[in-house]
Amino acid sequence: MTRTLYFLGGWAALALGTLGIFLPLLPTVPFVILAAFCFARSSPALERRLVEHPRFGPHILAWRKNGAISRRGKWAATIAFAVSIAAALFWLKWPWLLFPLAAMLASGTWIWTRPEP
């Protein structure tokens, strides 16, 4: 039963990561890293395909080894946060616009304190 849940979670994370390729505010790499985590517990063959992938494999390995996020990834997240804040300023009213700002500050601080590969 647990393997099945990890397997389904891996596919769900991979689907969200795939959507992130086309939707600028949805992150891709974190979902692919989550998919690799789930597949490591349910399908070693699928995990191996992700780890050996030329685009995502280095990010997965850097995260596993050091909890590292590339500088490019950090900047991509920061830009996505900025776009989200701009949208919040446009569509949300006080005090609701503070929630995305708080989320960005907390998440952005955490992301920028991660080591780089």
Rank of each mutant, 00 (worst) to 15 (best):
T2M: 10
T2Q: 08
R3M: 08
R3Q: 13
T4K: 15
T4C: 09
T4W: 14
L5S: 14
Y6G: 01
Y6Q: 11
Y6I: 03
F7M: 09
F7D: 05
F7N: 09
F7K: 13
F7E: 06
F7W: 14
L8D: 05
L8C: 07
G9M: 06
G10E: 02
G10W: 01
W11Q: 02
W11L: 11
A12M: 07
A13H: 06
L14H: 06
L14T: 04
L14P: 05
L14K: 05
A15E: 04
L16V: 15
L16K: 06
G17W: 08
G17Q: 07
T18R: 14
T18H: 12
T18D: 12
T18P: 07
L19C: 14
L19N: 07
G20Y: 12
I21W: 15
I21S: 15
F22M: 10
L23Y: 11
L23V: 15
L23I: 13
P24G: 11
P24S: 12
L25F: 13
L26W: 12
L26F: 12
P27C: 04
P27S: 09
T28E: 12
T28L: 12
T28W: 13
V29S: 11
V29F: 08
P30L: 04
P30I: 00
P30N: 05
P30W: 00
F31H: 13
F31G: 02
F31E: 05
V32S: 10
V32L: 10
L34P: 02
L34A: 12
L34Q: 03
L34D: 01
L34T: 10
A35V: 05
A35Q: 04
A36T: 03
A36P: 01
F37Y: 15
F37T: 08
C38E: 00
C38M: 05
F39P: 00
F39C: 00
A40H: 07
A40G: 10
R41A: 03
R41N: 05
S43C: 05
S43K: 03
A45Y: 02
L46D: 00
L46M: 08
L46Y: 02
L46W: 09
E47K: 01
R48E: 10
R48P: 00
R48M: 01
R48Q: 12
R48W: 00
R49Q: 13
R49L: 09
L50R: 06
L50W: 08
L50K: 07
L50V: 07
V51L: 06
V51I: 11
E52T: 10
H53A: 03
H53E: 06
H53D: 14
H53M: 03
P54D: 15
P54G: 09
R55C: 11
R55A: 15
F56R: 12
F56N: 09
F56Y: 15
F56M: 11
F56I: 08
G57S: 12
G57Y: 11
G57F: 09
G57T: 11
P58K: 12
P58D: 11
H59C: 04
H59M: 06
H59N: 07
L61R: 14
L61Y: 00
L61Q: 14
A62Y: 01
A62H: 07
A62T: 02
W63F: 12
W63G: 02
W63H: 02
R64K: 08
K65Y: 03
K65W: 04
K65S: 15
